[in-house]
Amino acid sequence: MKRSVFLLLIAPGILLLTIFLFYPLVVTLAPTFSNNGPSLARYLAFFSDSYYLAVFFRTVWIAVVATLVCMILGVPTAYFISRRRRSKSFLMALSIFPLLTNPVVRAFAWINILGRNGVLNSLLLSWGWITTPLTLLYTDFSILIGTIYLFLPLMIVTLVGSMDTIEEEVTEAAESLGASRLVTFFKVVLPLSLPGIVVGSVLVFTGAITAYSTPNLLGGNKNMLLATLIYQRAMSLADWTSAGVIAFVMIVMTVVTVMVMQKVSRRLDRR
């Protein structure tokens, strides 16, 4: 292919991305690095403000716990799916369906379950396990549940893709050498799916620190995360600089996570 044709084919994408993504980002974020001249003062201020710090750490904490839970539940489930034959595509469809369902709908589902008059409280009350309804909604707990619910299917689908590349004969070989199912899982399947687990975890973690609708609907005004905070600063308070600072912090968190995990993943993948 001639270089001119090549350039012609990629030019529209390059131009659109430059004009409508990178230029706006630079224009929006540049002011956060100046305070009568180049300065990191706004970032220092952000990280010394106890409210911002609390939001930052709540975001990270929820993302970490959600990632771990998705990992712990996702790995065995994905292994279960990848070793089915007839029911496999049905189970995959069942995992993909929530993924394609609107996040607002998915958060709404948990409002119905966790609310004061929600399904869970009514069940517990009718069984007599509690006497007054529990406050489950608009807490860190409800954000966490919603986040896990949002990203567990993503973890499962990613892991099934990774586990499908493990030949069945390899696990059979392990069994024939005397490894029980459980030992085969821990000694063969788990090490071989580590790269997939890393990829899935990155997707869940970066997704969790940037998700908007779930913390907005399940967290309420008191339990802000970075994504809801940025919207509130910008739209309700017209505090453009804080919004820009938060935006840049989120970009850095995403990029750093992806880069670190790429390094880790390359080291883990010994195949």
Binding site: T28, Y231, M250
Partner: peptide, 16 residues
């Protein structure tokens, strides 16, 4: 665009 959180894309485009 996958490395830029959606909310940030939205915010930058809103500003610009």
């Amino acid at each position: 665009p996958t490395f830029v959180p959606g909310i940030v894309v939205g915010y930058a485009l809103f500003q610009f």
